[in-house]
Computed example of a mutant assay.
Amino acid sequence: MPEAAVLDGDLLSTVDSDAGGARVWQRLGAAGVLREQYRRRTATGLVADPGRLGATLRAVDARGDNGVTLSVLVQSASALPILATATGPEFDRVADGECEVALAATDAAAAGSDLTGLGTEVEIGEDVVRVEGAKRWVTTATRAAYFLVLARHRPGRHFTAFTWVLVPADTPGVRVTPAATTLLPGAGIGHVEFSGVRLPPSAVLGRPGRGLALFARHMGTERLAGAQWATALTSRVLAQTRAALTRREIDGRSLWDHESVRQEFAACLVRVRALRALYEALGERVVEDHDLTSGAVLKAAVGLTADDVLSRCARWRGADGFADDGLQLLRAEAAVFGIGGGVTELMLGAVADDAEALLTELRA
């Protein structure tokens, strides 16, 4: 499906170039862009519009702050669709840009890809809901007004043992610590502890035991958004790199005039164009059919494409790539494509599991 037109060029021009993620989110919400990313709201959350979601990410990526783009992506593609199942005013506040929400899934007690091994627990009583545990590497944690917390409501690793709980950030017992990293500063990444947290029964989103099912329903949208952002980022860097190659000379010839460089650059361009074609072809399956295999294909393709393309671009920039704002830093930040939301190897395993069906489709 072709993407929607690029957002109005003036939309984010009123936001200072060094403004943080909160200001960008506020502007997108106030302009109605965040709501327009979705086709409809259902009992199980939001259904995204692939074209509009991609246009938003391209516009934000153009500002060149990967942390800010990451925060917009996670909130738009994962957090807001789940928050839409809440019955209170929280969704409207976040969707209108009044405040932000953080998706607190990655647990301190387990590896990021091991959701069923998480240790954060929720006790659901008739009059009170109690939350205990800790989450780590949470995007927008340091500035969120609400945390969407995936917690265990009964022992075991069964799919139905987990529930989403909405925790206001100012609730007694909630403690946020900024993550010890200089990468992606605009993302507001932090670790969150929940100690003796007490909430009303309305804090539980949906029926107890439907947490992982709801997460899986919207996980593909984040993977689609990741492919859209990776395409925007790598194509932007390729354009900047080509300009630099035409200016830099060796022995009286620009690097761009060397055939080996041209061919390697063209190979990068083909890979990025293929990534865009892939997410345009699979977008509808992801948002409408919740096709997990399509989501895994997209996520794996991003992991295999982004680092390779950016590594080559960084190498062409030579020593300049190691400047404080150079491509080596951008490359390090872009490593999130191969880790966040599912490591590339795990995604390839999921693709292999469905290899027979994929091969049948390719031969049809």
Rank of each mutant, 00 (worst) to 15 (best):
R93I: 04
L269W: 10
D257S: 12
L330Q: 03
V351T: 05
G45E: 07
D127F: 01
L224R: 01
R52F: 10
V149C: 00
E222Q: 12
R262S: 03
L255A: 03
R143M: 04
T44P: 00
L183Y: 08
L362N: 14
L214E: 07
A134Y: 03
P178W: 06
V47M: 02
Q240M: 09
E3W: 10
V261Y: 00
R312L: 08
M1K: 10
T181G: 06
E284R: 00
A95K: 06
T305K: 07
P81D: 04
G173I: 03
V261E: 01
G349V: 03
G117T: 01
P200K: 04
C268F: 13
A151E: 06
L73K: 02
Q37I: 11
G45D: 00
P178G: 04
T246H: 14
A43D: 14
P208M: 06
V129L: 06
R217K: 11
L80G: 10
T234F: 09
L166P: 11
T69Q: 06
A134C: 03
G173K: 05
L310H: 05
A243D: 08
P155F: 05
A43E: 14
V47L: 04
L11H: 12
G220N: 07
E100W: 09
A105I: 13
D61I: 07
R363S: 15
A144F: 01
T44R: 12
M1W: 08
L73G: 01
S17R: 07
G283C: 00
P89I: 00
A141C: 03
A244H: 15
I339E: 15
N66H: 12
V131K: 09
A5D: 14
R136F: 03
G112Q: 15
G295A: 03
H258E: 13
V15T: 12
A227E: 01
T56C: 06
T85I: 12
E288C: 08
A4C: 06
T181F: 05
V6I: 06
G97M: 02
R198N: 10
G112R: 13
E284P: 07
R40A: 15
Y38C: 05
R262G: 02
I124M: 07
G54R: 04
P2N: 15
V176H: 08
A109I: 06
K135Q: 05
V272C: 07
T181S: 13
G117S: 04
R276N: 05
G341H: 13
V128W: 08
S311P: 00
G252Y: 11
L245K: 00
G67A: 14
R210T: 15
T344C: 02
C268N: 12
A306D: 13
P81Q: 06
E361I: 10
G20K: 02
Q26T: 13
V167H: 09
E259A: 09
V287R: 03
L310Y: 02
D289W: 13
V197P: 02
D291R: 15
